[in-house]
Computed example of a mutant assay.
Amino acid sequence: MARRPTLQDLARAAGVGTATVDRALNGRGNVSARSIAAIVEAAKRIGYPLPASAPVNAPNAKPKFDLGFVLHKPSQSFYQRFAHEITRTCAERTEAQITPHLSFSPSQAPDDFAKAITDAASKSQAVAATAINHPTLSRLVDRLTEDGIPLFPLLNDFAGRSGAGYFGLDNMKVGRLAGWMMATQLQRSCRVAVMVGGARWHGQGLRETGFRSALREHAPQITVADTSVNLETRQVTYEATLDLLQRHADLAGIYVAGGGMEGAIAALREARPPGKVSLIVNELTEDSREALADRYVTMVIATPLQTLCRALVRHMVDRVGKGPEFSRERLFFEPLIYLPDSV
């Protein structure tokens, strides 16, 4: 009597591991469509009886993926749109069943980011997150990588070499773009200011560096004031803007490199006429759109969320299917530029 094929025989015939076969037969996910097809073909070839209830026997069976996403500042319209675009993109991938596990860090403290990412990783095969640069998060990325959970940093490359690949804008380029526009707009001896959220947002530090270098190159006659830290909050930005206007009578421009632009807009509406101070901000929201139309904002540099989310979800799914041999990529997306006459 011929020996009945075993699970190990099926795995060898399909060219995958026994754990992969077990996950495929029991619908535990984390199995690529290519591996499922190889398992089904091998089972037919060696005569392995697949259970009738096995997910691989279902007609037009779709691979299942659990993907984790961690953002912050849930009250800000930009991150609300980001979350909506992630959810919509996962639903659009009709060739797979993707369940997004989306959450927000309650604050910008490293421990809060770490907890939110850890919670997302506990129920996901891959995670994408916004976060600050901090040793706590660097160690967490290392641990997740060792556990086979790839982590994709968003907007700010906080994961270092252990990350699965950065998705966002080229922050140095964004800063230089802001500096070039400021130089072109002003073309005289004056003073400008730059605001960042804090020292732990290295992406904003790159924007500041790019901004200052572009001004040195294109408008050496413009003086840049000491960098202001606004903690990415509306109120702190509002107060910092009023303080700058009071201390520097020659202030002609402000670049808000991170969040909190609503405070700068509100302060300028109170203290200066339209166009008196050139304000450059990030992300097109109702506040920045209205400020553009009213000439309180000179330029908005925005993240192409739809393009980013589609590429992100595709790479996360591919990384889960292909495993650790999937190469790390840094994907820079071209920023969207909005001027007063384009809204």
Rank of each mutant, 00 (worst) to 15 (best):
Q8S: 10
A13L: 04
G15H: 12
T18Q: 14
T18Y: 08
A24I: 02
S35E: 10
I36G: 08
A37E: 13
V40E: 07
E41A: 11
R45K: 13
G47A: 03
P49T: 04
S53R: 12
K62S: 04
K64N: 14
F65T: 04
F65W: 08
G68E: 01
L71P: 07
Q76D: 15
S77D: 14
R81H: 15
T87H: 13
A96C: 11
H101G: 07
L102Q: 10
F104Y: 15
S105N: 06
S107C: 00
A109L: 08
D111M: 11
A114Q: 10
D119R: 14
D119A: 15
A121V: 01
S124A: 07
H134Y: 03
H134Q: 02
L140C: 03
R143W: 10
L144I: 08
L144C: 07
D147K: 14
N156V: 11
Y166C: 05
F167K: 06
N171D: 08
N171Q: 07
M172P: 04
G175Y: 00
R176M: 08
A178I: 09
M181N: 10
M182H: 09
A183K: 02
L186V: 10
Q187L: 14
A193G: 09
M195K: 05
V196S: 05
G197Y: 06
Q204M: 05
Q204V: 00
G205S: 03
G205L: 09
R207G: 02
R216V: 11
A219L: 04
Q221S: 12
I222C: 04
V224M: 11
Q235K: 15
Q235Y: 15
Q235T: 15
A240N: 15
D243Y: 14
H248Q: 14
D250K: 14
L251K: 09
G258S: 07
E262L: 11
A264T: 09
I265G: 03
E270W: 11
P274L: 07
S278T: 08
I280E: 01
L284R: 11
E290F: 14
D294M: 12
R295L: 03
R295E: 01
R295A: 01
Y296A: 07
Y296C: 05
V297I: 02
R310T: 11
A311K: 09
L312H: 02
H315F: 12
M316D: 00
G321F: 06
E325G: 13
F326W: 15
P335I: 09
P335H: 07
P335S: 04
I337A: 12
